[in-house]
Simulated assay, not measured.
Amino acid sequence: MFGDLSGMMHKLKETQQKVEETKTRLNTVLVDEVAADGKIKITLTANREIKAISIDPSLLSDAEELEDYLILTLNKAIEKATKINENEMAIAAKSGIPNIPGMDLFK
């Protein structure tokens, strides 16, 4: 019995390490989002850290328009990054979880 428990604990530690490695790797995965007309480009990591924002100078004269562009483009970029992050983290976590009937945590 304790052998199985020890093995499960080891497996959980391996999983935790894979999750941490995945978090670190996701810092290098860049997600780009460009506004429909190309006036704003945003780059962020899959961990949702903004790395760059490029703004067309024509938007600098109208603060309200600039804000609208930023909100729309940032939200799209964050949505993309979140999907990548959640998918990768689920794969990392699922790899070390034993197959226990009824415990489908990461589908």
Rank of each mutant, 00 (worst) to 15 (best):
G38Q: 08
I100K: 07
D104F: 09
G3P: 03
S54M: 10
D104P: 01
K80H: 09
Y69F: 12
H10R: 14
A90S: 14
L26A: 13
R48Q: 14
T15V: 09
G3M: 10
I97T: 06
K76T: 04
L5E: 08
N75K: 14
N85I: 10
M103Y: 12
L26F: 11
P57V: 10
E14G: 13
P98R: 05
A92H: 08
Y69S: 04
I71P: 01
L74I: 07
V19G: 02
Y69P: 03
G102Q: 07
E64K: 09
R48C: 03
E33A: 02
P98Y: 14
I55Y: 03
A52Q: 10
D56I: 01
T73W: 00
E65L: 07
K39Q: 14
V31N: 01
L26I: 10
F106E: 09
E49L: 15
G3Y: 02
A36F: 06
I84A: 00
L5G: 05
S61P: 01
P98I: 13
N85A: 07
L66H: 02
K80W: 09
L105S: 12
L12P: 04
E20H: 12
A93L: 13
P98N: 05
K51H: 03
I55L: 04
A93I: 12
S58G: 06
E64A: 12
M89Q: 06
D104A: 07
L72A: 09
M89P: 00
L60H: 05
E65K: 15
G7S: 10
L12D: 13
I78R: 02
D68I: 08
L72G: 05
L30T: 08
L5K: 11
K13T: 15
E79G: 07
E79W: 04
K94A: 15
D62P: 05
N87M: 12
I100C: 08
I78E: 05
S6K: 15
V34T: 12
K41G: 04
D37Q: 11
V29W: 00
A93R: 09
L60Q: 11
E67D: 11
E86W: 01
N47V: 08
A36S: 14
F2G: 02
V29Q: 09
A81C: 05
P57A: 10
S54H: 12
